[in-house]
Lab assay of single mutants.
Amino acid sequence: HNLTITQGKLFFHYNPKLCLSEIHKMEEVSGTKGRQERNDIALKTNGDQASCENELLKFSYIRTSFDKILLRWEPYWPPDFRDLLGFMLFYKEAPYQNVTEFDGQDACGSNSWTVVDIDPPLRSNDPKSQNHPGWLMRGLKPWTQYAIFVKTLVTFSDERRTYGAKSDIIYVQTDATNPSVPLDPISVSNSSSQIILKWKPPSDPNGNITHYLVFWERQAEDSELFELDYCLKGLKLPSRTWSPPFESEDSQKHNQSEYEDSAGECCSCPKTDSQILKELEESSFRKTFEDYLHNVVFVPRKTSSGTGAEDPRPSRKRRSLGDVGNVTVAVPTVAAFPNTSSTSVPTSPEEHRPFEKVVNKESLVISGLRHFTGYRIELQACNQDTPEERCSVAAYVSARTMPEAKADDIVGPVTHEIFENNVVHLMWQEPKEPNGLIVLYEVSYRRYGDEELHLCVSRKHFALERGCRLRGLSPGNYSVRIRATSLAGNGSWTEPTYFYVTDYLDVPSNIA
């Protein structure tokens, strides 16, 4: 807008934040220059609390790290170098490059900038070799853009010569660093050979998330399962459950009422301010606690030095998902009996873990797994792929695949051998790939016309006998059925096997 004052003059007093240069501009645009008398524009009460600059400061050096910015700028000295009290560095987070010096300023003089007072450097006698002032900004957020400017702080001049310097606002972004852990990993099994893994992005990506790394490792069953005799009275049979499938998407929606109208769909109840505040506090606490764990609990591995020492970490090797089922080394339970199943799973520490690289999504279907087997899954978020990966501390989750139908069934015939004193040795093959492992066998036998009897055969007993022995049988026709019990439950009964026990007292003698 054009402003013209045809008559009258300007009068400025007691404006401590208004620089004289701005008042002189007002004289020019209003056409009143030359009308004012000496005392109409006070030299001592206008701009006496402001830094009124008329020179431009330029930054000469900028260096960044993930949490620091090192700045240096060209030296500046007023005509009387004693008038320079120091520099004021202003900075704040700036997602967009549209910041002005006066953003967030209120009537009390406060604003949204963080201000650092910096002492002037030592003055050199040689004007050509003056030290460049600077400042190291610490405690910054990774991968965050900051708006920065600097200006001088000078003393009051009796001659009211307006001098000083100020830089333009520059924008500097800190470097990326390792992201925080992925949030809320959930693993479920939808079949006997697959596990579905879902997660949420890290709360602090500290860069642009480029991919996720998912490692999985087959877990050995508890050692007590191999040692305890679950045929003993009072000892509860062990059981394991597989990871249940995901709930429906509708039930997972946030901010939804727990109660549904019987007449149909209901609208979600909005969260109160107290609920939102509580969630923010919980989120802040979780982030602080995660940072504490990362800094205190997890110790970084030592990389190899120039002395030739090897990095103890196993090298990563990509495998196809079809090879995942046989990740671990199978060892027989008892070496003397080769027909026992290889369900003991000690994992070799030198073995390469299978892994998958996930790009542009937060889910993965891990296939080719062994049925009813526990897996430990390790999830890392990465925001750099080359020249070397920059990934987060791992988040861990466990899951067990679903049982395989008929995996616990005894394959092959049940054979028998009759000894003296009416002892019958029953023999059968253990299931080759049971659900988890076989903890015991149930032997059901009966003599024709009598009630059915049951015998429990422990895992250890089966390994020693290759089956079991029935003792003290009365003469007669017998039928026997056997079924295995694994961590997933009972298998199917075998087809009945028949044998006849004679009275050993009636056996004919070869003595003449």
Rank of each mutant, 00 (worst) to 15 (best):
206 N>R: 02
208 N>H: 05
208 N>K: 12
211 H>S: 04
211 H>I: 06
211 H>A: 09
214 V>G: 04
216 W>F: 14
217 E>R: 14
218 R>W: 02
218 R>M: 14
219 Q>A: 06
219 Q>P: 09
220 A>K: 06
220 A>V: 07
222 D>K: 11
223 S>L: 09
223 S>G: 05
223 S>E: 15
226 F>M: 09
227 E>H: 09
229 D>Y: 14
230 Y>L: 10
231 C>N: 04
232 L>I: 14
233 K>Y: 11
234 G>P: 08
235 L>I: 08
235 L>P: 06
236 K>R: 06
237 L>F: 07
237 L>R: 14
238 P>V: 04
240 R>V: 12
241 T>P: 06
242 W>E: 09
244 P>A: 10
245 P>Y: 14
247 E>S: 10
251 S>K: 14
253 K>S: 09
257 S>L: 09
259 Y>A: 12
260 E>W: 12
261 D>M: 13
261 D>N: 12
262 S>V: 14
262 S>W: 03
264 G>V: 10
265 E>T: 13
266 C>Y: 05
266 C>F: 09
267 C>G: 03
268 S>C: 15
270 P>F: 11
272 T>R: 12
275 Q>F: 08
277 L>Q: 06
278 K>P: 12
281 E>D: 09
281 E>S: 08
281 E>Q: 10
282 E>S: 08
282 E>N: 02
282 E>K: 06
283 S>P: 08
285 F>P: 11
287 K>A: 05
290 E>L: 13
291 D>W: 14
292 Y>G: 02
293 L>Q: 11
294 H>G: 09
294 H>V: 06
296 V>M: 09
297 V>I: 10
297 V>Q: 14
298 F>P: 06
299 V>T: 07
300 P>G: 11
302 K>Q: 09
303 T>G: 07
306 G>E: 08
306 G>K: 11
307 T>I: 03
309 A>E: 14
311 D>T: 14
311 D>K: 15
312 P>G: 14
313 R>H: 00
314 P>V: 03
316 R>F: 15
316 R>H: 07
318 R>G: 03
320 S>M: 06
321 L>Y: 10
321 L>D: 06
323 D>M: 15
323 D>H: 11
325 G>D: 15
325 G>M: 10
325 G>S: 14
326 N>G: 01
326 N>V: 05
327 V>H: 10
329 V>Y: 11
330 A>M: 08
331 V>T: 15
332 P>T: 06
334 V>Y: 09
334 V>K: 15
335 A>Q: 08
335 A>M: 09
337 F>I: 09
337 F>L: 08
338 P>S: 08
338 P>W: 11
339 N>V: 12
342 S>G: 05
344 S>C: 05
345 V>W: 11
345 V>I: 14
347 T>P: 09
347 T>S: 12
349 P>S: 11
350 E>I: 05
353 R>P: 15
353 R>K: 04
354 P>H: 11
356 E>Y: 13
357 K>S: 14
360 N>D: 04
360 N>R: 13
361 K>T: 11
362 E>M: 08
363 S>N: 04
363 S>G: 13
363 S>R: 04
365 V>H: 10
366 I>F: 13
367 S>M: 03
367 S>I: 10
368 G>M: 07
368 G>P: 13
368 G>R: 10
371 H>W: 08
371 H>D: 01
371 H>V: 07
372 F>P: 00
373 T>L: 05
374 G>A: 04
374 G>P: 11
374 G>C: 15
374 G>T: 12
376 R>T: 11
376 R>S: 06
377 I>Y: 09
378 E>K: 09
380 Q>G: 06
383 N>V: 06
384 Q>R: 07
385 D>M: 05
386 T>R: 14
388 E>K: 08
388 E>W: 05
388 E>Q: 12
389 E>K: 14
390 R>L: 10
390 R>P: 09
390 R>N: 10
391 C>V: 08
391 C>M: 03
394 A>S: 06
394 A>H: 15
395 A>H: 08
398 S>N: 05
398 S>C: 14
398 S>K: 06
400 R>H: 13
401 T>Y: 00
402 M>Y: 15
404 E>P: 02
404 E>V: 09
405 A>R: 11
406 K>T: 12
406 K>F: 08
407 A>Q: 15
407 A>W: 11
407 A>C: 01
408 D>P: 00
408 D>I: 01
412 G>P: 09
414 V>T: 03
415 T>W: 03
415 T>K: 15
417 E>G: 08
418 I>G: 06
418 I>F: 08
420 E>R: 13
421 N>A: 10
424 V>I: 04
424 V>C: 08
425 H>V: 12
425 H>W: 05
426 L>R: 01
427 M>E: 13
428 W>L: 01
430 E>F: 09
431 P>E: 00
431 P>F: 01
432 K>G: 01
434 P>R: 03
434 P>Y: 03
436 G>A: 13
437 L>Y: 14
438 I>K: 01
439 V>P: 07
440 L>Y: 12
442 E>H: 07
443 V>T: 02
446 R>W: 04
448 Y>E: 02
448 Y>V: 10
448 Y>I: 14
449 G>L: 14
452 E>K: 08
453 L>C: 05
454 H>N: 04
456 C>K: 02
457 V>S: 03
458 S>R: 07
459 R>V: 15
460 K>C: 06
461 H>T: 10
462 F>K: 05
462 F>Q: 09
463 A>Q: 06
464 L>T: 10
464 L>D: 14
465 E>Y: 13
467 G>T: 04
468 C>M: 12
469 R>E: 11
470 L>E: 00
472 G>E: 09
474 S>G: 06
475 P>D: 03
475 P>G: 11
476 G>P: 00
476 G>S: 01
476 G>V: 01
478 Y>P: 00
478 Y>K: 00
478 Y>T: 01
481 R>N: 06
482 I>H: 01
482 I>F: 02
483 R>P: 00
484 A>N: 00
484 A>H: 00
485 T>I: 11
486 S>V: 01
487 L>S: 14
488 A>Y: 15
489 G>T: 02
489 G>D: 03
490 N>Y: 15
492 S>A: 11
492 S>C: 05
495 E>F: 15
496 P>C: 15
497 T>E: 08
497 T>L: 12
498 Y>V: 09
499 F>V: 12
499 F>T: 02
500 Y>K: 12
501 V>M: 05
502 T>N: 11
503 D>S: 13
503 D>T: 05
504 Y>V: 11
505 L>H: 07
509 S>W: 07
509 S>N: 15
